[in-house]
Amino acid sequence: MFDAVKYRDRNVVERGFNAFKQWRGVATRYDKHNANYCGGVLVRAIVLWLKRLRDTP
């Protein structure tokens, strides 16, 4: 059965992951060390957050 609320929530999560995967370092995971990869994810999250803040009135 189709649940519109669940679909909307799933779509938000998928768009979030796709935004992270636009950055090559996160999408391909070239980093050999876990700390470097986690740092890259954190930097990408900060960049996306700052872009979102800039777009708000």
Rank of each mutant, 00 (worst) to 15 (best):
F17C: 06
N11W: 13
G39A: 07
L42C: 01
D9G: 05
D55N: 09
L48V: 02
Y7C: 08
D31F: 06
A19H: 12
V43C: 05
V13H: 13
F17Y: 04
L53S: 04
K32M: 11
R54G: 01
L42Q: 09
I46L: 07
W23M: 11
N18G: 05
F20R: 00
V41I: 10
L53E: 08
N36I: 10
D55A: 13
A45E: 05
T56C: 14
V26D: 00
D55W: 08
L53V: 06
A45T: 06
T56I: 12
R52S: 12
R15E: 10
C38T: 11
W49Q: 07
G40N: 02
Q22C: 05
F20L: 11
R15Q: 15
Y30W: 14
D9E: 15
N11V: 08
E14L: 13
R24G: 04
V26M: 01
L53M: 10
K6V: 07
G25N: 09
L50H: 03
T56K: 06
A35Y: 13
N11M: 15
N34T: 15
V43K: 04
W49E: 12
R54E: 08
N11D: 15
T56E: 07
N34W: 14
T28D: 06
A35T: 10
D31P: 01
G25Q: 08
H33S: 08
G16K: 04
R10L: 15
G39Y: 09
K51C: 08
T28A: 14
R15Y: 13
F17K: 08
L53K: 13
R54K: 12
R52H: 06
K21G: 04
K51V: 04
